[in-house]
């Protein structure tokens, strides 16, 4: 057992547990975005920052990846932590304002506006879908590609992956993908992950009596509508 100080409270946790796990166990809430039980911690969203150490040595670390140490002094909601979290939420709002998850986070932390150039990205590169695909679905169909501002998530060569079983797990965990699939119109697609998946309705010869996991995505209805429109024009 390791004993350390959590918000002034002397606590004991098992060796190897992270600060996030400890805080959750002792009832101190820490917001998370890229963390999910059952997936390897990744530390990408930085939302779970906590302050460790004292005085001039105090620093912010991501609690999801930092393991508890003997005698550590952890503060989960100090002024510095709250300020950093608000900044991160503002930055997330600046890139993906349409996400319900991020909107809720902003409301919860009383972030009412953001002061950066407004963008409408479709991905925050949190890596949840990549880890889901690799660790839980054992497929490894999607992953990170490129680097810097060209970093994106998708399949190799942007082609439909042979490893993909259309499980939809990537869409299920995506915090940005709230509108579900508009996949037959990739320009409007919200998460982009699905642009590389084929929905069951498109492969309907194969899956015609399957219950659609994308419901209520209405992609199939759009396809039908487009087809009808086409036949009307041709007729």
């Amino acid at each position: 057992m390791i004993s350390f100080e959590l918000n002034g409270l002397q606590v004991q946790v098992e060796e190897g547990s992270t600060l996030l796990e400890a805080a959750k166990f002792f009832g101190f809430p820490i917001p998370t975005l890229c963390h999910m039980d059952g997936l390897e911690p990744y530390g990408a969203c930085r939302l779970c920052v906590v302050e460790i150490g004292e005085g001039s040595k105090a620093k912010l670390v991501t609690s999801c990846t930092y393991r508890a140490e003997e005698g550590l002094k952890v503060r989960t909601s100090s002024e510095r932590v709250v300020k950093a979290r608000k900044m991160i939420i503002e930055l997330l709002l600046a890139s993906t304002p349409q996400s319900k998850v991020i909107q809720d986070l902003a409301a919860e932390h009383h972030v009412m506006q953001q002061r950066f150039r407004q963008e409408h990205e479709d991905c925050i590169l949190c890596g949840l879908c990549v880890r889901m695909c690799k660790e839980q679905m054992v497929a490894g169909a999607i992953g990170f590609r490129g680097r810097g501002e060209n970093r994106s998530i998708g399949t190799p060569f942007d082609m439909k992956s042979e490893q993909c079983r259309l499980c939809g797990g990537c869409m299920y965990v995506c915090p940005v993908c709230t509108l579900r699939c508009t996949f037959n119109d990739p320009d409007r697609a919200v998460c982009g992950g699905c642009a590389n998946l084929a929905a069951p309705c498109v492969e309907e010869e194969k899956f015609h009596d399957l219950m659609c996991y994308m419901s209520p995505c209405v992609a199939c209805e759009i396809v039908e509508y487009e087809k009808e429109k086409q036949t009307k024009i041709e007729g």
């Binding site: 490894g140 992953g143 590609r145 490129g146 992956s161 490893q163």
Partner: peptide, 13 residues
């Protein structure tokens, strides 16, 4: 024994 996307990720990085 790696997935193709891992190799592709390195190649594009």
């Amino acid at each position: 024994n790696r997935s193709l996307v891992d190799i592709y990720g390195v190649a594009t990085f």
